[in-house]
């Protein structure tokens, strides 16, 4: 295996949790909801995934449990903001704090326990392609899922009727309601999807990245995922590019440390956020494009009148 292949493999490993969590949040935000609880849903996904895999010995059960864990937490969020019309920003932040605390409590028993690693699946024929094979087609199921999700969400948003309804709800919830669409139902489904994706992103960390439970192991990846959605200006393709870019920066950080380059690691940790700020400034110059993709009702509460 060449050096470049090895680097690409680590970049994909670093980027996959970001892709998973961010693609879910992209769908949530496209429906007009801002869920700042990604970090919390990820870490709960990480701990439930680890616990389920540990109890059953099956990493696949762990994957399902991770998705479920994130989803349950997001269901709480959806209930609070959609039916009790709680403030989305405050509720999302509370969700992150709740998730961090909850995961620490559940995970206490698992600290130091060896984990179960999700195995790689070689796709026949394709994995034998030189260079591309080992990088793209000899991965675990979550990586394949992340590829499929980016393509699937892109198709869903721009080619399917349900996706059109979702975008319409995000653009103008009052009109969508007037046309007879259930704004709350669409948003509930989107939030649940986002929760499941964030849970999977967390599960990737505890089942693949470092197959063990460490408290706070998401280490801010949920926030990077949130930044990514804006960075990508709510487009799935751009989101994938951004995620691998951010993944590369994170890997660079380790290599720079190992090579003893005198850049403080804190500075490299800042890079994804710095990149988001730079990109935000850059794309804000072209307001037309930003406006066309930004969900106009993002973060606004909706109460249907009856």
């Amino acid at each position: 295996m060449g050096v470049l292949e090895a680097i690409l493999l680590t970049v994909i490993t670093a980027a996959t949790p970001l892709v998973l969590a961010a693609i879910g949040e992209l769908v949530v935000e496209r429906s007009g909801v801002l869920n700042l609880g990604v970090e919390g849903m990820m870490i709960v996904g990480a701990v439930t995934g680890f616990a389920a895999a540990n109890a059953t010995g099956s990493p696949l059960v762990g994957v399902a449990a991770a998705a479920l864990g994130g989803m349950v937490l997001s269901a709480l969020f959806a209930f609070l903001i959609l039916f009790l019309v709680a403030n989305q920003y405050a509720t999302g932040l509370a969700l992150t704090l709740l998730g961090l605390g909850l995961s620490g409590m559940i995970g206490e028993a698992y600290v130091g326990t060896p984990g179960v690693r999700l195995g790689r699946i070689d796709i026949p024929v394709l994995s034998d392609i030189p260079f591309l094979g080992p990088v793209l087609f000899s991965q675990d199921i979550l990586v394949y899922l992340s590829f499929a999700l980016v393509a699937g969400v892109s198709w869903f948003l721009f080619r399917s009727r349900a996706g059109l309804v979702l975008r319409a709800v995000g653009d103008n919830h009052a009109s969508a309601h007037a046309l007879g669409f259930s704004v709350r139902r669409v948003r509930f489904a989107a939030v649940l999807f986002g929760g499941a994706c964030a849970g999977l992103g967390g599960g990737y960390l505890s089942l693949v990245y470092t197959p063990q439970w460490i408290e706070g192991m998401t280490a801010g990846r949920g926030w990077i995922a949130l930044a990514l959605v804006v960075f990508a200006s709510w487009l799935p393709g751009r989101l994938a590019v951004g995620a691998y870019l951010f993944g590369a920066v994170m890997i660079l950080q380790f290599h720079a440390q190992a090579a003893g380059i005198g850049i403080p690691s804190q500075f490299l940790t800042m890079l994804p956020y710095l990149a988001t700020v730079v990109v935000l400034v850059a794309i804000s110059r072209d307001r037309t494009r930003i406006r066309l993709n930004t969900p106009a009702t993002l973060g606004q509460p909706f109460v249907p009148d009856r």
């Binding site: 009727r161 059109l164 309804v165 975008r167 319409a168 653009d171 103008n172 009052a174 009109s175 969508a176 007037a178 046309l179 669409f181 406006r291 066309l292 993709n293 106009a296």
Partner: peptide, 23 residues
């Protein structure tokens, strides 16, 4: 509607498709 119930970022066809029940 008086205050149009249209979706600014969508095309005319998409706006109309949203109101039609059939596929």
């Amino acid at each position: 509607f008086q205050h149009f119930s249209l979706f600014d970022v969508l095309t005319v066809a998409e706006n109309i498709a949203l109101a039609l029940a059939g596929k």
